[in-house]
Design a binder for these strands. Sequence first.
DNA 1: TTAATTCCCGACTCTTTTAGTCAAGAAAGA
DNA 2: TCTTTCTTGACTAAAAGAGTCGGGAATTAA
Lengths: 141, 141
Amino acid sequence: MFLTQRNQYALRAIVELAKRFGSGPVKVSEIATAQAIPRRFLEVILGQLKGSGLVAAKRGYHGGYILLREPEDITVGNVIRFLQGEPDHKDCQNCVFKLQCPTDRDCAFASLWNRVNEAVFGIFDETTIQDLVEDGRMVES
Amino acid sequence: MFLTQRNQYALRAIVELAKRFGSGPVKVSEIATAQAIPRRFLEVILGQLKGSGLVAAKRGYHGGYILLREPEDITVGNVIRFLQGEPDHKDCQNCVFKLQCPTDRDCAFASLWNRVNEAVFGIFDETTIQDLVEDGRMVES
DNA sequence: TTAATTCCCGACTCTTTTAGTCAAGAAAGA
DNA sequence: TCTTTCTTGACTAAAAGAGTCGGGAATTAA
């Protein structure tokens, strides 16, 4: 699989915020219920997501989280990159540049990893949160 | 990253066998040295790989491992699928079929995972072990 | 037939990652 | 001021990942 449970939670939380885009802050507990995510854990995750600039939190009575950009302006790639960075093929980079690579002369994988990486992020980058909201709708009926 | 260290070892071991295809059994210790893989660990991995039908082992004096098919007839996909199976999106399958999915109405991810999976295995399936051997050569010079 | 070599096998350890919890605190509004 | 809601950091538990170890079984050379 490509994403940890945690990162899927993060993505789903954002999708949930997107569904309610424009209707004010959404409480962690609402998101947790809607998406069947453990509330305590989700608090941690959303706390992290604030650092991305994609969401903001508001405390107090009518507090909660809001999405800072329109769902069609956020891609899955934006989210994933924030959560985990692009895969660092540091061993393979070394191979390419021929520096201190443990496998030395025969790292045949640099090109393969690059192609896979580009394919995956190509998809992530062309899929917006809005797309996910709409895909969800289709199944929902 | 897409593959565990262990599975990269497995792939590299097969590449090493491919490089020596046709010249009789190759000892684990030779592969381990050539590819900088801990020998004990590699024994375990190659033991597992026997189950794939891609390699066979011979014991005793001039024993070792051999590749059972030509390097151009084995794809990375063949190896990866044996090692880890195709990712099972069991939660998302549920979403697609609308059965007991934990996220219920809004699993927006089935389509995304499928596209990613197809992209990745598309690349894996069109890359042969021979390709990897040749890529290694290019860097080697 | 014995000794050397090499794979074979299962159990075992160590570390890292992942998942998730908890308690106390700070902001905001009613 | 009381309630609500996010905030923070520490904490625990379970699983996955990486790698080791000792002894046994097949094969071949001497």
